[in-house]
Design a protein around this nucleic acid. Structure first.
Lengths: 169, 169
DNA sequence: GTCTATAAATCGATAGAC
DNA sequence: GTCTATCGATTTATAGAC
């Protein structure tokens, strides 16, 4: 996950992965048949992480607004690494979209559908879907700007505004 | 530009470029010393395109609000290809951010500073910078979602809402 | 300037000993 | 299961004839 985040899929070699795992290059193939399998495992790991994060938020916060703000706070907490290497999810999706094999649509949908449910629970039944897309899009867009312009403040400032927008809902 | 947009930097080979240019593979090196030089030329081509687009908008529209809406309309007009291959600028920046050599920060800044000027001209002197970043971030974020979820309507709908937000300023 | 041919390096993947 | 060694394909880049 870390290597794919920092260097991207195409610029991460199996030798890099083997080195990071402290095993000789050939051993990687004992656990993964192809590089695509490794990518699939990374996607699965991201899915696990997102599910764990959302479950923790659901457990620690009871109101939908508090949950949405907790997600924003969680995402903004990574602003330093996001400014350096981009959003782990966003840049992964961008690279996967240039490929044919595996997709990350489910991964992104997991975020949007969860957010949509929170907006619905907050009483915004009519435009919950739209609000959810806007929230995630705003985060991903600012993550791209923070990364491209090498400025983590872009992301933290955006998160602060998104938080107060939730309050005013 | 087209190949890098569709397949990404890393998945575009010099053979692909030579084939698209109807020249034998060796000939590419007569015009570009390295692949990085080709990437640099593509960045320059994007810069040229953006400058031309913004100049045309400045010439055809006189009020800052009309200019901002014209930019949004321009960007939304590409929603079909954006859903298929991502935002040409955004996905290029994402890939360049994983590299060391060339940067696309100036390319992105060209968009944001132009938008910032429009917001300033529209009387929003205090938060022009922030409004500009939010506008571009919203576009890039929705472009990523449209691409990942393979749905151009996400981008066109977002553009429509961004347009009416400009009206209400 | 344009072409063919190929070098040099890298990378994904496999074979086979232990 | 773990390791070394290496194959085969791909890719960037160069050499040299025309």
């Amino acid at each position: 996950m870390q290597l794919l985040h920092q260097n991207g899929i195409e610029r991460t070699t199996l030798a890099d992965i083997a080195h990071a795992a402290h095993v000789p290059p050939g051993n990687v193939y004992y656990y993964f048949k192809t590089k695509d399998d490794i990518i699939g495992a990374v996607i699965q790991a991201h899915t696990h992480d997102i599910n764990a994060t959302l479950a923790a938020i659901d457990a620690q916060h009871r109101t939908p607004k508090a949950r949405l703000k907790a997600l924003i706070h969680e995402l903004a907490g990574q602003s330093q690494t996001v400014a350096r290497h981009g959003c782990p999810l966003g840049s992964l999706c961008t690279e996967l979209n240039k490929r044919t094999n595996p997709t990350a649509a489910d991964l992104m949908r997991r975020l949007t559908t969860w957010a949509e449910q929170q907006f619905r629970d907050a009483g915004h039944r009519r435009d919950a879907h739209q609000l959810a897309l806007e929230l995630i899009a705003a985060y991903e867009g600012h993550a791209l700007l923070a990364n491209t312009l090498q400025d983590p403040d872009i992301l933290t400032a955006a998160a602060r505004r998104l938080g107060s927008r939730i309050d005013k809902l």
